[in-house]
Amino acid sequence: MATDTHSAAEASGPGMPQLDFSTWGNQIFWLVITLVVIYLILSRVALPRIASVLAERQGTITNDIAAAEDLKAKAQDAEAAYDKALIDARAEAGRIVAETKAGIQADLDKAIATADTKIAAKAAEGEKVIAEIRTGALDNVKVVAKDTAKEIVAAMGGKADAKSITAAVTARMKG
């Protein structure tokens, strides 16, 4: 543009090229074409496209926020359900523990009762045996005492009849 500036400057005079009205028609012609072209490009292609992109982005953001809120609500529900399940499980566990305890207690009581009766039976039996043994022993003592008394009387040279010895031993043992 600057190669032949001198000649051009001389041609248009010393003033401003802006006020050289001979070029106005040319500029206005090209300007109108330019503006129409830009307008068509913008209104047909660029602006609808950008508007749709912006709308789509807005929609995506809105959807994402809604989805996030949905998920949050779901998470809260899940948490509540979890808490409830936990409480239920705890209660169930407590119930089972109590039940089991009660069952064990019952078994235990039963076993203790059985054992007590068995022990009682054994004790009674043992006492019986002891009583038998005791009576047996008493009899033996009587026999031994009679025999011993008879032997002692015989040894001392007396003649003892069995009847009087028995009576004497019995009388002694009672005393």
Binding site: D4, A9, G15, M16, Q18, T23, N26, Q27, F29
Partner: peptide, 26 residues
């Protein structure tokens, strides 16, 4: 002010339809 001169791109006089440097830059 020379930078503001309107010049025909291919020489010759400037009519209303002439491609000029203004037309080029538009």
């Amino acid at each position: 002010m020379d930078q503001f001169n309107i010049e025909s791109l291919f020489g010759g006089p400037i009519a209303w339809y002439t491609p000029t440097n203004a037309a080029l830059w538009m």
